[in-house]
Structures are given as C-alpha cells and as structure tokens.
C-alpha cells in the first residue's frame, strides 16, 4: 500500500484531489464499522481516518459525540480498534490513520499503541488534543517506528505555530477550516483558504482541510487549493440515517466532487 503522503501528492498531481473519510471504530458495532470503512474506501475515499470513541471529545459536534457514545455503550473497548484496523486492512489497501484524543493513547502506553497500530496495518495517527509542544514522546516513538503523525493548525495559529506544527507533522497537517467543532456548515469559511495559503508558504508538508465539509461542491472547492478534503460528520450522519447503503451513496456523492 502507498503512504498517506504519496497518495495525497499523486492525487494532487493528477488533478484528481483527495477525499479523506472519518468514521468511528465500533459504531454502531465493531463489525458494522469495519463494513463502513471498507465501503468508504471502495467508493471513493483516498485516505481513511478511524476514530477512537472517547468519553470527552471536545473537538467534536453532536453527531460524532452521539455516535461514539453509542459505540462505547455497545461495548467498544480500545483493543477492538486494532481488530477494526486489521479487518479493514485485509480488504483494502487504502492508507489508514487513527484519530484519537490523547488520554486513551497515554493510558494504553504510547509505545505499545504505536506497535499495535503498526502491526494491525495503520500508517499513523491524528491527535486532535495533542499539540507538538506536549508531544515529545509521541514525536520520538512515531519517528522511530516510521508512523505518520498529524497535528492541527487553525485560523488562530500564529505563523510560528503554523510552521512548527506543519513541520512536526508527517503525512499531512490538518488545517481546521473554521474556529469551531466538527459538524456540517452550509458554506465553507474563507478562513480555510487563507490558512492553507499560510501553510503552503511556510512548510513543505501537504495539508488537508477538515471541519464543516459535507458537499461535493465543498470537496471540489477545497481540493482547488489544498491537498485533500476531510469529511466526518456527513458520513456518520449518512450511516446513522440510512445505514450502509446511505454511507455508500454519500461517499460516491462526495467523491464526485473530485477531479
């Protein structure tokens, strides 16, 4: 399988652009989440993000909060994450990142978490509440194991921080489109384009834009200036409302926004 970085660059070069799809492990059950992620990969997602259900998801809006609560209520435990990765990896070669708040990783053991990600077939991790300033151990472990690490940059980040966070990232750096939490927005904030402009002028690291993207038009727009569009809430909502077929339809619909 190819790396996240190479996939994004190749898709950019060909003019296609990339769709990065988020879906939480264990929602609504472990098995269902495997099927969902495989379907997303088979119907147009270029990179997968597997979310780790967590008790205190401060970056997430209600749709993802409720879905991850349901996953935990249905019995999801952390070791299930690696089963989900393994089963998805057995079926598709799409590059795959874990998205986790920091405490579950810390509690599991940073080194062991990294080893288990690697062994199950994940390429790295996005850490929404871990900034590079606090990430010394993760920087060291991800470096030594060759895992991607994706940090966030935001419209409020200073140029110094944009540079530092982008340079510390491996795979891509996550540009938060707007000052807010995950969830659909009717229009994309103009802050997103400005932020990506800063990332591009300050760092070589590719960047994908996330938060608030839910239409093919927005996917197309973001790919006109960034290296990929990240969609989460819209996929979770599609599954919630219409099951696997709804998710497949939503994936195809959004992938149509690619070139």
């Amino acid at each position: 399988m190819s790396s996240v970085h190479d996939t994004l660059l190749a898709n950019r070069e060909s003019g296609k652009g990339s769709l990065v799809g988020y879906y939480p492990a264990g929602y609504p059950t472990v098995k269902d989440s495997v099927d969902a992620l495989v379907a997303m990969a088979q119907n147009g997602c270029d990179v997968l993000e597997i979310g780790v259900p967590y008790s205190d998801p401060v970056m997430d809006g209600l749709v993802i909060q409720v879905a991850t609560e349901e996953a935990r209520a249905a019995g999801f435990v952390l070791r299930d994450l690696f089963d989900v990765i393994r089963q998805v990896r057995a079926k598709v070669s799409t590059p795959l990142l874990v998205m986790s708040y920091w405490n579950p990783v810390l509690r599991y053991g940073v080194e062991k978490f990294a080893e288990d990600m690697l062994a199950s077939g994940a390429q790295g991790m996005i850490t929404p509440d871990l900034v590079p300033d606090e990430a010394a151990h993760w920087l060291e472990v991800s470096q030594s194991k060759g895992l991607d690490r994706v940090f966030l940059v935001a419209p409020s980040s200073s140029n110094e921080r944009v540079t530092a966070n982008a340079d510390a990232s491996q795979g891509f750096v996550y540009s938060v489109s707007t000052m807010g939490i995950t969830g659909e927005r009717a229009t994309l904030d103009s802050l997103a384009r400005q932020l990506v402009g800063r990332v591009k002028s300050l760092s070589e690291t590719p960047t994908c834009v996330g938060v608030g993207i839910s239409t093919a038009e927005q996917v197309r727009e973001v790919n006109s200036y960034a290296d990929g569009a990240i969609v989460g809430t819209a996929f979770v909502k599609a599954y919630r409302d219409e099951g696997l077929s709804g998710l497949v339809a939503k994936t195809k619909e959004l992938a149509a926004g690619l070139g």
Binding site: P128, D129, V131, D133, E134, L152, A154, S156, V176
Partner: peptide, 14 residues
C-alpha cells in the same frame, strides 16, 4: 499540568 487542548485554543491561552 501542561496544555492538552486542540490547536485552535492555543492562541487564546497565549
């Protein structure tokens, strides 16, 4: 201690 928060909040904390 420290600052384990999403990047968008760092500027406000600064």
């Amino acid at each position: 201690g420290g600052r384990f928060v999403p990047e968008p909040l760092i500027a406000a904390l600064d």
